[in-house]
Design a protein around this nucleic acid. Structure first.
Length: 891
RNA sequence: GGGCGAUUAGCUCAGUUGGCUAGAGUGUUUCCUUGACAUGGAAAAGGUCACAGGUUCAAGUCCUGUAUCGCCCACCA
């Protein structure tokens, strides 16, 4: 057998991945006796390429999934991608632009064909990247939000809500990009801080010389003013209440209204109300029924017919012209510099125009009710808990959801109009044949497309093939295996846990909960694990535009997927943000190598000694074996507990510490020079169980080593680690000798350290240890290890009861006596160092003693804690005795 | 403006219901290559757990306030 001393993930990972896929280990099946455990992946955008956020999100899910799989749950991890309306449309438009084409010249159908072509070609990039990461999704179930069946669910939902009168059409201010001629969501119109001006304009009172000054940053919109508003608490304007003002330039009469939205501290405390071009104004105006918005711009942001003499001017030209006119009329009081945050088109950086237009909405209040209740009752739980409040706060103040988008790529709104009589407006899963009123067949479908989230919010059940009842008018063919799908749905839904980022609690998580209740009558998932945001080491969000990204694929290339996974989990404390830098991945890489070499040692040793291992036999264990098994038991319990409560980082750390510091540093070192059959079996057993513990975090290397064990021993093992079983705690084993042995080594190390502190060479320490025959055997067996630690040329062991004095007993704790060549240490300084240590320990011991002496402590702490404290004190006391003994022996 | 979070070793971060003698990784310093691993081993230095009060037998952990930083939400024209 040949195993290289350095782990090479590049050779291992693709091979292992292939074998997992070929064997279908990730396939989900209904297993009657097993507990179902399911997760739906937060579908990445089809345009996506794997970034650290994905890596974190999917590693967490994979850890949970692999853990549950090992624990014997029937596991389903449902993968898929999101059509990501605007993002995808943009990508394709950009591609077309390079070919000198644009979507308008192509027309809707041709353009959509281009998008589909693009998606077929590039849409699986992210999927293969997730595979590389080791994500054990049931890939054969891969779903896409634009799949035929999925689209059917979307349409069904729209029609259902429409029939329940929960969908309506209304006017709303949207972010409009005049260059791209499309509406943008708030996320697509990021605000940028801009230096601008605040213009103070006088509005005259009707039939009076008095005036009110209003402040605005956008004078050109004043042409669309329909009122002036002040705060009802603002008594400065009390005399104007109920009066009418004259809008300058256009000479329109506008009322003065009171609205608590107005901040009396800002500007003059009076604000012009332009409902067609400002969201806040729109909301104010909609509270006063008699105010009708006046639109003053065309979609290309030139002024329209309502702008009078300014018609045809660009909005910024108009601004200048209007300011000039106002100046001439002496209606401009002053201009102040003012910085403000303006939305910019994320694609072309054009300044967004808030624009009044007709959009589709979902009435959210009724949907929110059960979703609020479920979280309040604790049927759905957030981890960490604090997000509960964020969620509830939003849900209780929920506003209607604007679901229409003026783009082409997406689910087209299933609403049909009659071109002839203009009366028919109907939502339908299929195109109606004729108009109900005039019988015309000249029907047309709404041009708009649904918000991407309107399909994503169905993800937890639409991915299962919901709705299972076919629509009486459904035109698309229903899947044949619909019964099977329904069964799977009933088995796996509600899903177990949702793993996602805080940014989309509102967009996605909350809406999925609402959809779950509305359409399936059940909650969509029981637990919600919200992980942190990935940031660079200075705390900035990782983003392409900042150029501070670390490419997970590069990390995989350099260190391996396991190293990436382990490192990222380790620094993702539950729910806190993840700060990353390249060095952080060294932890994972180094650990991979450590695991590799431990396995290498054990396997090569077994081979070279020709030990045949067919099964484990745990009778006749020595103390070192008992000890490591006990440590393993403890680790299994701790890791399970941590994973059960989503403390993945703690779990990972537990495995790391056990494997490295207990198993490698102590156990393997102890047995390495006395590697017999028992040691072989036990070390192999520990290795094998450790691999299971490691597997959720580091699936590739653990699987590879498992394969090596399978190949090189006669053990009967499951086909692969991924489908083996989570370790079970063996009967409790109390190790006896190992702790005293560790204490002995500590003592020796201490002497060596003191020598080093004193500036003496600690390089070599020859020593003799005299002890009773019980311990002697054990020490003899572990002599090499002791020598290695002490770097002594020779360690002599003597039986205490067999006479033969040591020349100089430096230390005697009853168990053993140590004699070493400390002759060159000056007694004063040696004792001084010891005294310092003793003092520190005594202080602590004093504290614990005081605690134990306190009546209150005894009353409140409980017997377990008291025992713990007593044990600690005893431990400390022994330590003190040891140090005192050392001191006495030396003096 | 509202809400939430953070502040612990030089750096990056852990620290579950108060019981801590405050940990890890990394960096620094010292020592260690024939026997799994230098991507390793043995050690050391480095912390009044942001600050000020409070509750408690006991506070990194709970409460109040202050400061600094960060995030989210919101309709400051």
């Amino acid at each position: 057998m040949e195993i290289l001393p350095r782990y090479n993930p590049k050779q291992v990972e693709p091979k292992i991945l292939k074998s997992w896929l070929e064997n279908g280990f990730f396939k989900a099946k209904i297993t009657a006796k097993a507990k179902p455990f399911s997760i739906v992946i937060p579908p990445p955008n089809v345009t996506g390429i794997l970034h650290m956020g994905h890596a974190l999100n999917n590693t967490i899910q994979d850890v949970l999934i692999r853990y549950q799989r090992l624990k014997g749950s029937s596991v389903l991890w449902m993968p898929g991608t999101d059509h990501a309306g605007i993002a995808t449309q943009n990508v394709v438009e950009k591609k077309l632009a390079k070919q000198g084409k644009n979507r308008k010249s192509l027309g809707r159908d041709n353009f959509l064909e281009e998008v589909w072509k693009w998606r077929d070609e590039y849409g699986t990039t992210i999927i293969s990247q997730l595979e590389k990461l080791g994500a054990s999704c049931d890939w054969e179930r891969l779903r896409f939000t634009m799949d035929e069946a999925y689209s059917q669910a979307v349409t069904r939902v729209f029609v259902q809500l429409w029939r329940k009168k929960l969908i309506y059409q209304g006017n709303y201010i949207i972010n409009w990009c005049p260059r791209c001629q499309t509406a943008l969501s708030d996320e697509e119109a990021p605000r940028q801080e801009k230096e601008g001006f605040l213009y103070y304009i006088k509005y005259r009172l009707k039939n009076s010389d008095q005036f009110i000054t209003v402040a605005t940053t956008r004078p050109e919109t004043m042409l669309g003013d329909v009122a002036v508003a002040v705060n009802p608490q603002d008594l400065r304007y009390q005399s104007f209440w109920g009066k009418t003002l004259i809008l300058p330039l256009v000479e329109r009469e506008v009322p003065l209204i009171k609205d608590k939205l107005v901040d009396s501290q800002f500007g003059t405390g009076a604000v012009k109300v332009t409902p067609a071009h400002d969201l806040a104004d729109f909301q104010m105006a909609s509270r006063c029924k008699e105010l009708t918005p006046v639109l003053v711009m065309n979609p290309d942001a030139t002024m329209n017919e309502n702008a009078g003499v300014y018609q045809g001017m660009d909005r910024f030209q108009a601004r200048e012209a209007i300011v000039e006119s106002l100046k001439k009329l002496d209606l401009l009081e002053k201009i102040e510099p003012h910085s403000l945050a303006v939305g910019h088109c994320y694609r072309c950086n054009t300044i967004i125009e808030p624009y009044l237009s007709r959009q589709w909405f979902v009435r959210m209040k009724p949907l929110a009710k059960p979703a609020i209740k479920a979280v309040k009752k604790g049927d759905i739980k957030f981890y960490p808990q604090r997000w509960t409040k964020v969620y509830l706060n939003w849900m209780e103040n929920i506003r209607d959801w604007c679901i229409s988008r003026q783009i082409w790529w997406g689910h087209r709104i299933p609403v049909y109009y009659c071109r002839d009589c203009r009366k028919e407006v109907i939502a339908s899963e299929t195109k109606p044949e004729k108009c109900r009123f005039c019988k015309s067949t000249n029907l047309e479908q709404d041009q708009d497309v649904l918000d991407t989230w309107f399909s994503s919010w169905l993800w937890p059940f639409a991915t299962f093939g919901w709705p299972f009842e076919s629509s009486p008018v459904a035109s698309c063919q229903l899947p044949v295996d619909i019964k099977k799908k329904k069964k799977e749905f009933e088995y796996f839904y509600p899903t177990s846990v949702l793993v996602t980022a805080p940014e989309i609690i509102f967009f996605w998580v909350a809406r999925m909960i609402m959809a779950g209740f509305e359409f399936t009558g059940k909650l969509p998932f029981k637990d919600i694990y919200i992980h942190g945001t990935v940031r660079d080491k200075t705390g900035k969000k990782m983003s392409k535009s900042l150029g501070n990204t670390i490419d997970p694929l590069e990390v995989i290339e350099d260190f391996g997927a396991d190293a990436l996974r382990f490192s990222i989990i380790l620094c993702a404390a539950s729910g806190s943000d993840v700060y990353l830098s390249n060095e952080r991945f060294l932890v994972g890489r180094n650990f991979s190598n450590k695991i590799w070499n431990a396995a290498r040692f054990i396997l090569l040793k077994i081979e070279s000694l020709g030990i045949e291992i067919a099964d484990f036999d745990f009778t006749q264990l020595a103390d070192s074996e008992k000890w490591i098994i006990a440590e393993l038991n403890q680790t299994v319990a701790a890791v399970s507990a941590h994973l059960d409560s989503f403390r993945l980082n703690e779990a990972a750390k537990e495995v790391y510490d056990f494997f490295w510091h207990d198993f490698c540093d102590w156990y393997i070192e102890i047995i390495k020079d006395d590697f017999s059959g028992t040691q072989a079996k036990v070390s192999l057993y520990i290795l094998q169980e450790s691999l299971k513990l490691l597997h959720p975090f580091m699936p590739f290397i653990s699987e590879e080593i498992f394969g090596l064990i399978k190949k090189n021993t006669a053990l009967t093992l499951p086909p692969a680690l991924v489908v083996s079983a989570w370790p079970q705690c063996r009967k409790k084993i109390e190790p006896r000798e190992i702790e005293t042995f560790k204490a002995l080594i500590k003592t020796v190390a201490e002497i060596r350290n003191i020598k080093a502190i004193l500036g003496l060479s600690s390089r070599r320490l020859d020593l003799a240890i005299r002890t009773d025959s019980d311990h002697l055997q054990f020490l003899e067996a572990n002599k090499i290890w002791l020598r290695r630690l002490t770097l002594a040329d020779e360690v002599k062991f003597k039986d205490k009861n067999q006479g033969e004095d040591l020349t100089r007993v430096l230390y005697d704790n009853g168990l053993w006596q140590i004699d070493l060549d400390a002759g060159n240490i000056s007694p004063e300084s040696f004792v001084a160092v010891l005294d310092k240590k003793i003092q520190a320990k005594e202080a602590v011991a004093g504290k614990i003693k005081a605690r134990l002496a306190s009546q209150q402590f005894r009353k409140n702490a409980g017997s377990e804690k008291i025992a713990e404290e007593e044990f600690r004190l005893k431990d400390l006391q022994a330590e003190l005795d040891r140090l005192e003994g050392l001191k006495d022996a030396y003096q």
